[in-house]
Each structure stands twice: as structure tokens, then as C-alpha cells.
Nucleic acid binder design. Structure first.
Length: 249
DNA sequence: ATGGGCACCTGGCTGC
DNA sequence: TGCAGCCAGGTGCCCA
């Protein structure tokens, strides 16, 4: 890597002053992921990136003029530039010189939803004694990671569970159904490129086609695709929840 | 330990 | 056409 240029340090957390010096001249050894954090490993340490709600990473040819909200560039020595764009600045960038799994942002993260540590048995066990609404429970990164607002509503619909149910009130059977629904929803969404609601596009500039598979999300007032009842919406933990009160109990 | 609410931002859309 | 108000794909942190 040849150089690093930071134009705007004020992301969700300010980019540390030592960031440029830490990675300048280093070689990328691996790119990994944990929850929604992107990990770029170098010999001397690891970059921990998050795209927040509006962030994107793009490879552009060296010499391409930055646009508004292009906050930093990593110039690699084959003529390409890894460029971070984030209008809302909810994204973040951290550098760690030690094991990234020990970093405070990653240390307490729950199992990956598509990994071996997450299944019906795990979900049933962890829901016991928890009074919080099940929708907020599955969006808690100390329970399971990667379940965002869209997929939380969709998974609950598929499992036929009402979003306001207390987590502890789920039966064993329901916990198993919900774990399977979470895996299915995320697996399908990943397969077809995610969910484009407004301006989201993938690395090639293509939209995600999961929007066409949504049963309830952003369908307030529309007919439930299963029973034709009107899809409802309310706010839970400052986030919109969508559901069908006929299909879900 | 748990749960609830707030915070960080810009941009796009809606309705007056 | 302009503008105020509202909403948004996330999640860490503070407080009760």
C-alpha cells in the first residue's frame, strides 16, 4: 500500500491521529468479517471498519476525484484506491495492533446467525428470564449479531411470532422456528444481494433484490401476502416494526 | 444484570 | 417553489 488520505476524521468516533502512520506502507494480508464489522488484516495490526447506515467502500482508479462525503482513501500500489463514502457518518474506523476479537467493539459480540453457535436450542435457552420484546431481543448484538431492523420484522413474520411478545414467553417450538427463520431470511437475502430500499447498491453498483421477497417490512397498509389482512406498523425502541396481527401471535 | 432512551449525521420525501 | 417536519438499512453508551 502506498498511501492513506483522510479528509474527514469525524465519523461515529473520530479517526485516531495515529491511523495513517500505523498502516502506511503495510501489506494487506486478509479481509474478514465479524458481525457487521469488516476486518482488514495487516502485518502490524488490523483495521476494523463499519459502514453504519449509509457507508460504502468502493475501488476506484487512482486519480478519480473525490466526491462529497468521500471521507478517506487507501491507495494500493496497483493503481487502485479503496475509497470510503458515508453521508451520515455513522460508519467507523478503528486500528488495533492486537487480536481484533479482543477489541472492545468485538469482544462481547454474540454468535454469528449463520454459524454453528446459533440454533433453536441456543435461542430458547437465552430467551429464558428475558422480559424484553422478542423483536428487540433478536436485534441485540449480545444475543445474535447481524439481525437488523428489516430482517427482524421479516424473521418474526415467517416464524408467526408477534414482535411485542416477551422473549421469555416463547415456547421451545417457537424459539426453534424463529432461529430457523432468522437463518433462512439472512441466507436468502445474502444470496440475492440484500435489500435495496432507497439507494443501497452492492460493490458492482447493482441493487439487492430481497425487497421483492419482503412480507411485511415497509408494507404498512398493504395486504398481507399470506392472509390478505392489513399489515401494521408501530415503533419499538425507536425503530419501525411491521407485522401481520392475523398471522403472528 | 437488564431495559429503555439518547446520541451521532445528512438527505430524501411529504405536505402545507 | 420553498421550507419545516419527519423518517431512514446501526449500535454504543449512559442512566435508572
Amino acid at each position: 500500500m502506498l498511501d492513506v488520505i483522510v479528509r474527514e476524521r469525524r465519523l461515529r468516533w473520530p479517526i485516531a491521529a495515529h491511523f495513517e502512520a500505523a498502516i502506511r506502507g503495510q501489506t494487506v494480508r486478509a479481509v474478514e468479517r465479524r458481525a457487521k464489522y469488516i476486518l482488514i488484516r495487516f502485518d502490524a495490526g488490523t483495521l476494523i471498519l463499519h459502514l453504519g447506515m449509509s457507508g460504502s467502500l468502493r475501488l476506484v482508479k487512482q486519480g478519480t476525484s473525490p466526491r462529497t462525503h468521500d471521507h478517506w482513501d487507501i491507495h494500493v500500489d496497483n493503481g487502485w484506491v479503496l475509497r470510503f463514502h458515508d453521508p451520515r457518518r455513522f460508519g467507523s474506523l478503528h486500528w488495533t495492533g492486537t487480536d481484533p476479537e479482543l477489541h472492545p467493539l468485538l469482544a462481547k459480540l454474540a454468535p454469528e446467525p449463520l454459524g454453528p453457535g446459533f440454533d433453536g436450542e441456543y435461542l430458547y435457552r437465552t430467551t429464558r428470564k428475558r422480559s424484553v420484546a422478542i423483536k428487540q431481543f433478536i436485534m441485540n448484538s449480545q444475543v445474535v449479531v447481524g439481525v437488523g431492523n428489516i430482517y427482524a420484522s421479516e424473521a418474526l413474520f415467517r416464524a408467526r411470532i408477534a414482535p411485542r411478545r416477551a422473549a421469555r414467553r416463547l415456547t421451545r417450538k417457537e424459539a426453534f422456528a424463529l432461529a430457523e427463520a432468522i437463518k433462512a431470511v439472512l441466507g436468502e437475502a445474502i444470496k440475492i444481494g440484500g435489500t435495496t430500499l432507497r439507494d443501497y447498491v452492492n460493490a458492482d453498483g447493482a441493487p439487492g433484490y430481497f425487497r421483492q421477497q419482503l412480507f411485511v417490512y415497509e408494507r404498512k397498509g398493504a395486504a398481507c401476502r399470506v392472509c390478505k389482512s392489513v399489515v401494521k406498523q408501530f415503533v419499538q425502541g425507536q425503530r419501525s416494526t411491521y407485522w401481520c396481527s392475523t398471522c403472528q401471535h
